[in-house]
Structure formats: C-alpha cells, structure tokens
Design a binder for these strands. Structure first.
Lengths: 118, 118
DNA sequence: CTCGTTCTATCCATTACGGATATATCGAGA
DNA sequence: TCTCGATATATCCGTAATGGATAGAACGAG
C-alpha cells in the first residue's frame, strides 16, 4: 500500500489545487480565480503563485498538461497544469478539513446570525 | 465609522479564534482542541500557539479574561482569553470565507463522491 | 516532600509569503 | 512591419509565520 502521507500543503497550495480542480489550468488564470473566489481577501502574487506551482509539481500533486488546442487560441507562453491522482486525494482531504472547520464555525455561531440586533 | 480593515489573520490565528469561540479559553486547552477538531492534521506547537495569542492580543482580537472561579478549580498558571468585538467580526469574516471555499470545493467535486468506482 | 503532569513562555532554524523586478510573447493599431 | 500595452512566466529578496526544542513555574497525587 502506498503511503498516504502527503507532503504538507500550504494555504497557497490549496488555493492553487482548488483553482485547477475548477478548471483554471494556467498560472495567470489561477491568480485571477483566487482573487475572485475569495472576494479579494486572498491574493496570490506572482512570487507565491509560481513558487507554489513549482513545489506542487515537485511533490507530484500537479503535472504539466499539453496545450489545449481546442477552445483556447493557443498561447505559447502559457503552461497548463492538471491534478495528479495524489493531488486529487490531497485536495479532497484538505477540502474535507475545510468543511469540518466551517461546521465548527457554525457551531460556534460564527456563521449566519449576522447583525441580529443592530 | 470604524475601519473594518482587520489586520491579516494567519491560519494559526483563525484556529485560535475558533477554539476560543468554542469555549476553549486557555492556551493549553486550545492546543488540544485544535488537534482534536482537525483530526490531528493541524497541530499547534507551544511556539506557534503562544506567539499567536500574543499577536492576536496585540492586534486587539482577543483580550485576557478574569479567571473563572466557578466551574474550574482555579489554576493560577492558566491565562484565559475571550474574543473582543473586533475579534468576533474577524472570526466571522474568516468563517464565511472558509464556507465559500468549502462550497467551491463541492463545486469542484472534491467533497462527497468518494471512491465511487473503487 | 517528591515527582510526573500541566501550563506558559522564549529561542532558533526553516519555510512561506508578498512585492518588485526581469523578460518574452501576444494582439491591436499606426 | 513596427511599436506598444497587456498577458504570462519566472526569479530575487526582505519580512513574517511556522515547528520544535528548551526552560521553568505551579499543580495534584501519593
């Protein structure tokens, strides 16, 4: 049985995995997605982004994919990525943790019931 | 109107705020709660924990609370904390972001549908 | 009184982050 | 075709966050 001991995933690392899972396959697109989905409260600069992509790739969580000649007009500068099997498992595990924390947050009264009195 | 520009919240910072919101008011108890609620996948060592508490306190997100002489048998070593109004707002905002990310994870198929084929 | 546990606190090495900078390609338009 | 701003990737560097080791005081059981 393969070790499921995944290498530690950084916050930025999860953002990137999530963006790729959502179909944003190249670096620049990932930046925009993260900014948008978090309402601007998380912003990956180029430094963090490409360093994170390199680490995820070295850890075997993502791999470079061939250019998609279909819909996209083929931009030679772009590098596309996709999740590996391991990357998918890691992303799922992290997503489950997030869900758990969101549930705890709800238990703690941190969700919903906003400005009830005011 | 007060600035809502909260100081940046670190991952460890949110864990601590959540633990306090859940009623774990002193450092050592927070360590145990975080370990437990995350199934051991997040572990705050003493270094991170107390440094984080100090920073949260300096930023006005938490404040020290008087010892609870009621249920607890009074342990003079313990230091109790509670959320400030600002801390509560920040925790809520972060919890909402978490929820959003969990929802995106679901959209990406990272939640549920586990080992369908196997 | 003694000892193991609880609890807070600080120090240090490693790592992650954020932003500036560099460079190359693309597409629009003169 | 030549120029220029926007797109896209990549690296560098200073700052901050993390993890783990270490220290030491107060607690409770025996």
């Amino acid at each position: 049985m393969a070790k499921v001991n995944s290498p530690p995933l950084t916050p930025a690392g999860f953002q990137v995995l999530l963006a790729i899972a959502r179909g944003h396959a190249h670096g620049y697109g990932i930046m925009g997605f993260v900014d948008e989905v978090t309402g601007g409260s998380v912003q990956l600069g180029p430094g963090t982004l490409y360093r994170t992509l390199a680490r995820l790739s070295a850890d075997g969580l993502v791999e470079e994919a061939p250019h998609r000649t279909e819909d996209e007009p083929h931009d030679a500068r772009r590098r596309y990525y996709r999740l590996t099997d391991l990357g998918l498992r890691v992303a799922r595990r992290e997503a489950a943790l997030l869900q758990r924390l969101a549930a705890e947050s709800a238990e703690a009264g941190l969700l919903g019931e906003r400005a009830r009195t005011a």
